[in-house]
Design a protein around this nucleic acid. Sequence first.
DNA 1: TAGATTGTTAATCGATTAACAATC
DNA 2: TAGATTGTTAATCGATTAACAATC
Lengths: 235, 235
Amino acid sequence: MASLGSFFSGIEAIHYDEDMNPHISKIPKQPTVRRLPSYLYFLRELSEKGEQFVSSSYIANKMQIEPILVRKDLESTLITGTPGVGYHISDLIKCIEDFLGWGKALNAVLVGVDHFGISLLGHRELINFGLRIVAAFDNQPPKCRASFFGVPIYPTAFIAELLRTFSVDLAILCVPAKEAQAVTDILVASGIKAIWNFTSENLAIPDTVITQKEDLASGLAMLSVKLTHIESSRY
Amino acid sequence: MASLGSFFSGIEAIHYDEDMNPHISKIPKQPTVRRLPSYLYFLRELSEKGEQFVSSSYIANKMQIEPILVRKDLESTLITGTPGVGYHISDLIKCIEDFLGWGKALNAVLVGVDHFGISLLGHRELINFGLRIVAAFDNQPPKCRASFFGVPIYPTAFIAELLRTFSVDLAILCVPAKEAQAVTDILVASGIKAIWNFTSENLAIPDTVITQKEDLASGLAMLSVKLTHIESSRY
DNA sequence: TAGATTGTTAATCGATTAACAATC
DNA sequence: TAGATTGTTAATCGATTAACAATC
């Protein structure tokens, strides 16, 4: 089973450009990729305030991590800073966006239009981060309205047809856990490239399809354990 | 800055029981804690199907991780399995729940009743995982209804008063990023113990208050980078 | 020049995996 | 007994941190 995990080893890989000159590029590390959007939020805010330059320690302070970690993360995006000065903010924003492949939008469909699904449809920050939801599907589309936030809602049965017609990179899965595998099978059969899985189900899926699983409960577990440890360390 | 991170070092700590007999307990590792809820989902499913025992490799196969990692994770919960047989499912469920401090409910309030907030109010799985949302707050409580899924909605101005009156462990923060710090200040001043932060803001908060930050964009970043790497490795 | 901050190289720390003896 | 699977101990791998020379 060739796992995608192997893409995230932090090992250097040799690529060749058009003239076949080899150049080394860092294959991104998972934790680094996960931190980059936070940097981006903050940098955009600084940029709006009219700031020009920022140092790794300034970012680190805001994020509550070590400055050297910020420098290592930013290094992955191929930005170079200026000793004694810091990083040029708008260059940095550009580098992070390019690195994450944002800028050119990802087309997505969403399956499962409950409150959570609707909240994603209206999530402006996702749009800022290169995600465009072009259609949504539900077993029982709401009778009273055909769209939310401008995204049209269709019955689930239309998934295959729509994916055949439009170029869609990504499906966002928000259905109940019990329905998740069945919907996934349809999506995979329709040639979807990636699935962003918000259900609690561990999907069985071919290696050729990318998945990203989100699990609310894992955050709650962290909180719960932190609370327990604090409590029990107070005696 | 004494960081809570230090509670998650995987180093053994010596605790003392009532008779002051020292016993070693594993301080939980972050990745382990984050995986436990997934195990729990799966184990409850198996349990419903009437299964009695499960092996680490069976779980590992479902989760797409290595069996030894499952055994290591389960070891943290103090369960012991039976060589040649596996783990007793209902014992295992009990051990994980105890370890995560679930069972006795966490009382929470939610601030910011948009679609996302409403989806949390109705999220049955969170209730299964020991979270009880007792009240919600919003700057503009919906005029047409006083509650969602049985949880009453109050104006934000009432936060301090409610926290003074009821025992609340946790605040769930779903307000827009620009309002996040102001609401946090109120919560902290009202003596909240922990904040589950769904905003994109890195909150400034005293060391005594626990935080857990969730960031949708970090998952999207992972997906986006995976997609980019697949694309660019196809030539 | 002096102060600030990057970027490099090495060290440490933490998490996962491997190997295998113990045991049902 | 033979087969299966745990749990222990050691090895590897990956991520973060430290130290400091280079540079604006």
